[in-house]
Design a protein around this nucleic acid. Structure first.
Length: 498
RNA sequence: GCAUCUUUAGCUCAGCUGGUAGAGCAACUGACUCUUAAUCAGUGGGUCCGGGGUUCGAGUCCCCGAAGAUGUACCA
């Protein structure tokens, strides 16, 4: 395999040598561009009539040379245009440069636009300049326009190669490039939406002396100067809350979290998260905000109400369903867990062959029942409310029920998309919750929270009542771009070393 | 982690019940001044994912391993 690659490389290197010997710089510093290719398509007739001379730059993605005349396709970020290169126009010397071009090279073409005899809108080259020589032939993807639609042949389609060599995927598969353009637009849309609600964007530490804000195993690293271990954050929560203690009333952060866990089509070890906190709001405020934000992004950024996702048709319009976890368990399994009777609930879990982890109480078991019975049925957007306190160590107790919290998760197509609560601001209660987590940790729960004394101290100074919300950005983008794997929406997903 | 499937030329793929590899595109050489999946003629290119085994003989059968996909478990 290697020897063959080397042979292909060798030929391109020899060509490079010939270019250098001809006195041409294959990697010049200067390029000159007066128009993007896309601009030339705005009003073709006007450009043709103007006979204006353009300089365009781009990658040569196809070549059709025939003796002393040649065609090529030149592509930049804005579009693709055919170039027409005739020896009698550019001169013998410059035509030699064209003959040394390969697909994959970056070149500059100077000339005006015209229609060829076949009616193809093209640039009639007056001069060709080599901008960057390609030394490794690109995988061959051909394209034919049928009824105005591009039909592609021999697409660069190997999933593993696409992820490992993402630059080739982006270069050769315009549809996949589009996903990341949309990703950028969606994130921009989130910022615009939150800006309209007077949130400020902040940045909090990724390297943390303690990790918290979620149940997950962390990545551990080491700081040499401080000679101390640090954790990569698993959530943004505890630092953002400190900012609300500090007097900010509406903050958000969009950033990477890191969780040392398994990978599948919904999980990448590093993933993007939006978290926001709004003082003097609460759970219902977060619900309204979540629903408005999703609808805004769907309508204003993507321009769609209905999305095909995970084999379902998801409709984001209308008022979203709200139901408590216990109601949903009852609806889909017939089992009523509202009495929090540990023995009865454990028996129900056993009946359904659900493994009960060490130290799990009624609340944890209810959530397991919910996941086993109800989750997969929640296809249209559903706010699942009233989470057991036991599994919600940072959420405020639900008034009138000490077993539950004022929390929701948003489920769409059976997947979790958002998580929000009325945030716990009682420092004494928070300490007891941390201690309960610490006991779970001693029982072997590697994902239980650790006691964060510095955070508790901050709470003791006083934190206003507030709503908090987390949205998994990658999953949101999966939904809005209709992709079924998280790897399709992360530019460089985690892969095992080859 | 477990189960199933996949891995053959730079890319996309063929290769039936075992007889030491094929196509298209890409590459290279030549022809060609209106092509556009350009065309025509010719050429080169493979440790068949890796390692063992069975066999006179393995891309093909068996075992072990690797990577990937899917499902499942775990991950609220």
């Amino acid at each position: 395999m290697d020897s063959n690659v080397n042979q292909l490389l060798k030929l391109r290197r020899e060509k490079l040598q010939r270019i250098v010997e001809a006195g041409i710089n294959p990697y010049p510093v200067k390029s000159h561009r007066t128009r993007q290719i896309g601009e030339l398509f705005h009003d073709k007739e006007r450009w043709i009539a103007s006979e204006e001379q353009f300089s365009v730059c781009g990658r040569l993605v196809a070549m059709r040379r025939q003796g002393k005349l040649g065609f090529g396709n030149l592509e930049d970020i804005s579009g693709k245009i055919q170039i027409y290169v005739a020896q009698n126009l550019i001169g013998e010397e410059n035509y030699e440069v064209f003959k040394l071009c390969d697909t994959g090279d970056f070149i500059q073409v100077d000339g005006a636009v015209f229609n060829t005899q076949a009616g193809e809108y093209s640039i009639k080259a007056e001069h060709i300049t080599m901008l960057s020589k390609n030394l490794r032939p690109l995988p061959a993807v051909k394209e034919k326009i049928v009824d105005g639609k591009a039909v592609r042949y021999d697409e660069f389609a190997d999933i593993e190669l696409r992820y490992r060599k993402r630059y080739l995927d982006l270069l050769l598969n315009p549809g996949h490039r589009q996903v990341f353009i949309q990703r950028s637009a969606i994130i921009k849309g989130i910022r615009k939406f939150l800006d309209s609600r007077e949130f400020i964007e902040v940045e909090t530490p990724i390297l943390q002396p303690l990790y918290g804000g979620a149940n997950a195993r962390p990545f551990i690293t080491h700081h040499n100067t401080l000679d101390t271990d640090l954790y990569l954050r698993i959530a943004l929560e505890l630092y953002l809350k400190r900012l609300i203690v500090g007097g900010f009333e509406r903050v958000f952060e969009i950033g990477k979290n890191f969780r040392n866990e398994g990978m599948d089509r919904f999980h990448n070890p590093e993933f993007s998260m939006l978290e926001l906190y709004q003082a003097f709001s609460d759970l219902s405020g977060m619900m309204e905000l979540t629903e408005s934000c999703f609808k805004y992004l769907a309508k204003e950024v993507i321009g769609q109400d209905v999305f095909h996702f995970q084999g379902h048709e998801v409709n984001l319009t209308g008022e979203w369903k709200k139901a408590s976890m216990i109601e949903l368990v009852k609806e889909y399994s017939g089992f009523d867990a509202s009495d929090f009777d540990e023995e009865r609930i454990a028996a129900e879990c056993n009946k359904r062959k659900i493994e009960i982890p060490k130290g799990a109480g009624a609340g944890k078991m209810i959530s397991l029942l919910f996941e086993a019975c109800a989750e997969e049925h929640l296809i249209q957007p559903t706010f699942v409310t009233d989470f057991p306190k036991e599994i919600s160590p940072l959420a405020k107790e639900k008034p009138g029920n000490p077993n539950l919290t004022d929390r929701f998760e948003l489920l769409i197509a059976g997947c979790e998309f958002a998580n929000a609560f009325s945030e716990l601001n009682d420092p004494l209660d928070q300490r007891m919750r941390f201690e309960a987590q610490a006991r779970l940790k001693e029982l072997g729960d590697e994902e239980a929270n650790v006691v964060d004394e510095d955070f508790l101290e901050a709470l003791e100074y006083g934190m206003p009542p507030m709503g908090g919300l987390g949205i998994g950005i990658d999953r949101l983008i999966m939904l809005l771009t209709e992709n079924n794997s998280i790897k399709e929406v992360i530019l460089f997903p985690q892969m095992k070393p080859e």
